[in-house]
Amino acid sequence: MSAISLSDLDISYGSAKVVEGVSFDVAEGESFALVGESGSGKSTVLKAIAGLAPDWTGGMSVLGQPRGHRPDRGFARRCQMVFQDPYGSLHPRKTVDTVLSEPLQVHGLGNRDARVEEMLRAVGLDRRFRFRYPHQLSGGQRQRVAIARALMLEPKVMLLDEPTSALDVSVQAEILNLLKRLRAEQGLTYLMVTHNLPVVGFMCDRMAVMNRGRVVEIAPATALHDGSFADPYSRALYAASGGTAHD
């Protein structure tokens, strides 16, 4: 069973079709990247899976369960999303504790206190951060909270939308290590959007290169080592990121 399966997915915003005919499968436990420039539709694909871009046609299924157009409470238990900007994605008037307890409350799960403590430890945050507000945290700490929030319901699939692009390189390294460790520990599947190819090389097994709403190529992450991309656009993107192809 594949963790995420998209077939012939079209997504529109109003009359503009921004994603066309996207199909790929992400195996369970795999880390899969969507790369491309702004406007290529890569984030839109994530949003559609998460239910934030409802105007889509085609087939989507997560862990074997087809995704419908309506909000799906069970889906939240299987799949969660982490957003790009930790400054914008946390509620400014809610403490870390509230943010982390809320998903448990919504889903009627007990033992909240212990679960919150445990999750804070898992993402490497000290307990003294538990009753702080987002403005009292640094960017890296906020992104740790956002990751903790996504993991509260113990999902198996994580959608990561540029999880480190708003962070400094030194903090980026910490968050990437954290994501990698969590995946190994909890057997997670990642679908990650990024424009940073070296990050793909570090985090992912395979990638889909998107351009103008279409997937132009699906390549293994090892293609980054030697630049063995088939599509001219992928090659151009690789070259622009400072990659040098060895023929």
Binding site: S170, Q172, A173, N177, L197, P198, G201, F202, L224
Partner: peptide, 20 residues
């Protein structure tokens, strides 16, 4: 040196990135 090492490289083979 820490800053330099923390950046993922195109030919990445490290299992974890060194943290400052």
């Amino acid at each position: 040196r820490g800053l330099l090492a923390a950046v993922p490289r195109m030919h990445e083979t490290r299992d974890s990135l060194p943290v400052l």
